[in-house]
Design a protein around this nucleic acid. Structure first.
Lengths: 330, 330
DNA sequence: CTGAAAGCGCTAACAA
DNA sequence: TTGTTAGCGCTTTCAG
């Protein structure tokens, strides 16, 4: 059976005490060169890997953080989820932090008490866990949500402003009949984008039209249905703002299939700046959101918190309108 | 600062020894009812959560498994990666196994020695880590790969056979000019599908045509490029087998945009049975691969291995041809 | 059925 | 600069 060598074996082989071994392994205080070399050789010969579990126990905290991600189909299959997992995963890897992934359901209850910190990818559905984490005094940061009533750090994208920018752009182009395919209301981000859409129209005193606002769920199917509904309207919109690039691409496919042209007959703005938005049938004008930066910032904030050096912060990252070829003036 | 109550606090409050507390918490040996109740009450009052780190230390193994996933753009943004993460994540959640996610680069070196088990989502690029895991005697299972030269369990999808089925179907429909958009050669699965394509043609003595075999990388962009290349050929194929549904959908979009029809002018078969393949412009005929079953099987096998009850097994899961509307006889 | 005590592998005073 | 030692919180013999 497996029998990893431990610090004692190394000490014995190197002819020093375990403290010395610990010191050289952790590069803490200075050790006489000759001893360090002995230890290093022993480490190599024995293939010694420090037992992180023991270390975590004595340190009273682990180097592990949990990423809590709900498994709603919609959000999970979105570019967002993937990019967040990838981003946080990559940063953790480079910071040598262990990443625990929790794919949750509203009623899963996690034992959060043994991680060093937690990142919530979405809180609308995880409110209880968030509160528990705060109560347990575990360093926590929420992403893509702005939480004001709880003492947690958050780093978010300015979804409302981003959506507003998108619609403003369409408005500036002369469009007045602007439809919207939303991302539902299961996430704060999706709700914020809807807010932004409404705000932009309200600012120009353009009344909201119920038939122009269609609820999607970030899936391609929902976008297809929505686009078809929009195209079958007596008074069609001249432009559509779509809450994600993936959905926008699907909407474009539908429009093209019906023999209409984009942007000539219909202008489209997406949201994400998904890399594939450059390469579709028509390069997509969209809102770029710095997902990677958000992931990175979240992990760094958390790391600070975990080391007792940080304090609660609320960071809001700006979006940027990326103009490509899917819009034309009205 | 945080000060979780520990087993000793509970023991004191319940008026018993820590051994007794341990027993009731772990439901191990029988404890007198009155004592059990006392302990349970104390646990509740103190909100006692056992420290899993200490437990792991004394048990000499953790309840944590690592999922190692390379971060090649192509594979990472595929339906496969997402479904695997989601599948394994979900199963682990229900089995109360902690899931460590490692998003790796070829040259990241992980400290694998402190997990209870490892699942490799892809081994072509992770061969060294795999070998190390085996050398360290850590329970390991590889998914979507069949490894014969190493003592590891693997559970895989029969990619070769699946691809062959797809092409055979086209062949049976009378097609002879069958093109192929591949998933590259960075993963075993992608290579196997290419094998399957070649085998199917060879079995009917149809010569391979270089211009009919285009390398993709599972991204929509690569599929778009490939489809355009295929459509610009003097002698166009009459059917295309595409190594993923996502890519197949993109190919269909391209074809439709050029004013051609699917399946009338071009038959398409995908691979994955991605849920969205039902809802696209044309419901896609495809190869269903039981990704969830694979994930589930992998975790269960690993769990067995971790509990010393299992032995090396190599499981190959069958695919299934799902006939929808994207193919027509020639 | 219950409790005392010996560790699991490591870190961090403290002493030398 | 180095070694000794006391834990970190828990499980598990082994006695009682």
């Amino acid at each position: 059976m497996r029998k990893n060598s431990n610090i004692e074996d190394v000490a014995k082989l190197a002819g020093v005490s375990i403290s010395t071994v610990s010191r050289v392994v952790n590069k803490s205080s200075t050790v006489r060169a000759s001893n360090r070399i002995c230890v290093e050789q022993a480490v190599k010969k024995l293939k010694f890997k420090p037992n992180l579990i023991a270390k975590a126990l004595v340190k009273g905290k682990s180097n592990t953080i949990a990423l809590v991600m709900p498994r709603y189909e919609g959000i999970f299959y979105s570019y967002y989820a993937l990019e967040i997992i990838r981003g946080i995963g990559t940063i953790c890897e480079s910071l040598k932090i262990d990443l625990l992934l929790h794919i949750t359901h509203p009623n899963t209850n996690l034992n959060l008490s043994n991680v060093g910190g937690i990142i919530f990818a979405e809180v609308l559905s995880e409110r209880k866990q968030l509160e528990e984490a705060v109560a347990l005094n575990i360093p926590t940061v929420a992403i893509n949500n702005l939480i004001k009533d709880l003492a947690v750090s958050c780093v978010t994208i300015n979804n409302k402003q981003g959506a507003r920018e998108a619609v403003d752009y369409l408005l500036d182009l002369g469009h007045r009949d602007i439809a919207y395919i939303s991302g539902g209301n299961l996430t704060q981000a999706a709700k914020d984008r809807t807010q932004g859409y409404k705000l932009a129209l309200a600012a120009r005193k353009i009344p909201l039209r119920g038939e122009f606002m269609i609820e999607g769920d970030y899936s391609r199917k929902s976008a297809r249905d929505a686009a078809e509904k929009l195209l079958s309207l007596k008074n069609k919109p001249t432009a559509i703002f779509v809450a994600s690039d993936d959905m926008a691409q699907e909407a474009i496919s539908v429009i093209l299939e019906k023999g209409l042209r984009v942007p000539d007959d219909m202008s489209i703005v997406g949201f994400d700046d998904n890399p594939s938005s450059i390469y579709g049938a028509v390069p997509l004008t969209t809102i770029r959101q710095p997902l990677m930066v958000m992931a990175q910032t979240a992990v760094k904030e958390l790391d600070l918190l975990m080391n007792g050096e940080g304090k609660i912060s609320r960071i809001c990252l700006p979006t940027k309108l990326i103009i490509r070829d899917s819009c034309l003036p009205r």
